[in-house]
Computed example of a mutant assay.
Amino acid sequence: MESRPIAAEVEAVERAIQYATITGCPLHFVHISSVEAVSVIEQARARDLNISLETCPHYLLFSHDVLTQKNNLGKCAPPLRQKEDQQKLRQAMKANRIDFLTSDHSPCEADLKDASTYNIFDAWGGINGGGLTLLGALQFAIEEEIDFQHVANWTAKHPAERFGIANRKGSIQEGKEADLVFVSLDEHLVTLDNMYAKHPLSLYTNERFQASIESVYSAGVEVFSRKVGPIQSKTGKWLTAY
């Protein structure tokens, strides 16, 4: 964390904003981990620059303290921050200062995260969490007593609007594709077996969520069931902005 401080994140954000100012290019920030960076982006947006931003569930749910428990499994970039910085970011998310919530999906073979083989600088960097993004968003909402409508905005509506596919994705409306997720408030324990991945080990392994995914539909076709697991389908297609 000290090798990649918040000051470095802010400087990188400021540099990208300067490039966007010069070129007029729309800009989207991924993996924002500090409220200081959020504030810099807000100042730029106040000047009518076309900028959006996101953070990841692990920055909201975990602090730097997790490295003392899970070692290299918690390595990511930017790094997990101090508890007080994590709390500030949670408040920013709660106040709708961050547009959406996405994964930093970076799986790897288990030995690349092995602390007995690799130190923190040489270990694989990134969090295997793409399949748990929605559960992470729901967990944050439950802990902060936020209406689930905001979860739908963070993970579906706002991304679809930002990237020009809201005419067919991002919300439940007549004429749009039936991309649906059914959830329950049954507890979900993350295990290597229910990650359904080639490389299932994750920062989230053995973590408990206060919600679970019951089923997932892509364009009206069921592609996942809690009882069955992933269901083979061919609904995927390349999306272009309108």
Score class of each variant (00 low, 15 high):
Asp114Arg: 01
His28Gly: 10
Lys157Gly: 03
Ala44Phe: 06
Phe62Asn: 10
Thr155Asn: 13
Ser33Met: 06
Phe224Trp: 07
Gln82Asp: 08
Ile213Ala: 14
His58Pro: 06
Phe62Gly: 07
Pro230Ile: 01
Ile231Lys: 10
Pro107Trp: 03
Gly74Val: 01
Gly229Asp: 09
His64Ile: 06
Ala95Cys: 02
Ser116Cys: 02
Arg4Lys: 12
Glu144His: 15
Leu201Asp: 14
Glu11Lys: 13
Gln139Asn: 12
Glu144Val: 05
Asp104Glu: 13
Ala241Met: 03
Glu187Met: 02
His58Asp: 09
Ala137Ile: 10
Phe100Met: 14
Gln18Ser: 13
Gln82Tyr: 07
Phe209Trp: 00
Asn71Ala: 12
Ile165Glu: 11
Phe62Asp: 06
Asp179Phe: 04
Glu9Cys: 07
Gln173Val: 10
Ala77Asn: 15
Val30Leu: 15
Thr240Ser: 08
Leu80Tyr: 03
Leu134Val: 15
Phe140Leu: 12
Ala115Met: 03
Pro79Cys: 10
Val228Cys: 05
Asn206Ser: 15
Gln86Asp: 00
Phe224Val: 07
Asn50Arg: 09
His64Gly: 04
Ser33Trp: 14
Lys157Asn: 11
Ala156Cys: 15
Gly164Pro: 12
Phe209Arg: 02
Ala44Asp: 04
Pro230Leu: 01
Gly170Trp: 07
Ser116Arg: 08
Asp65Pro: 02
Asn72Asp: 03
Trp154Phe: 11
Phe100Leu: 11
Asn50Leu: 03
Tyr59Glu: 08
Ala92Ile: 07
Glu207Trp: 01
Phe62Cys: 11
Asp147Met: 05
Ala110Glu: 11
Leu203Cys: 13
Gln232Leu: 03
Asp99Phe: 06
Met195His: 05
Val66Lys: 07
Gln210Ile: 02
Tyr242Arg: 04
Gln87Thr: 12
Glu84Gln: 11
Arg45Cys: 09
Ser225Met: 04
Leu61Gln: 10
Gly136Val: 06
Ala211His: 05
Glu177Trp: 07
Asp147Leu: 00
Gly74Ile: 03
Pro5Val: 02
Thr235Gly: 07
Pro5Asp: 00
Lys70Asn: 05
Arg15Met: 07
Cys76Ser: 10
Asn50Gly: 00
Arg162Cys: 13
Asp186Trp: 00
Asp104Gly: 09
His188Leu: 01
Asn128Gln: 06
Gln149Arg: 14
Leu192Val: 01
Ser233Gln: 11
His188Met: 04
Glu174Ser: 14
Ile213Asp: 15
Gly220Val: 07
Pro57Val: 01
Ser171Gly: 08
Asp111Phe: 02
Phe29Ser: 12
Gly136Cys: 11
Ala219Ile: 04
Ala16Ser: 13
Ala16Ile: 02
Ser225Gln: 11
Lys70Tyr: 08
Phe100Thr: 04
Ala160Asn: 14
Asn119Cys: 03
Gly236Phe: 00
Arg226Gly: 04
Ile146Trp: 12
Val151Tyr: 08
Val38Arg: 09
Asn96His: 06
Gly24Tyr: 08
Val181Ala: 07
His158Asn: 15
Lys88Ser: 11
Lys234Ile: 00
Leu135His: 03
Phe148Leu: 15
Asn50Pro: 01
Gly229Tyr: 04
Gly136Ile: 02
Glu109Ala: 13
Lys75Gln: 14
Phe209Pro: 00
Glu161Gln: 15
His64Arg: 14
Asn194Tyr: 03
Ala197Asn: 09
Ala110Gly: 00
Ser218Cys: 15
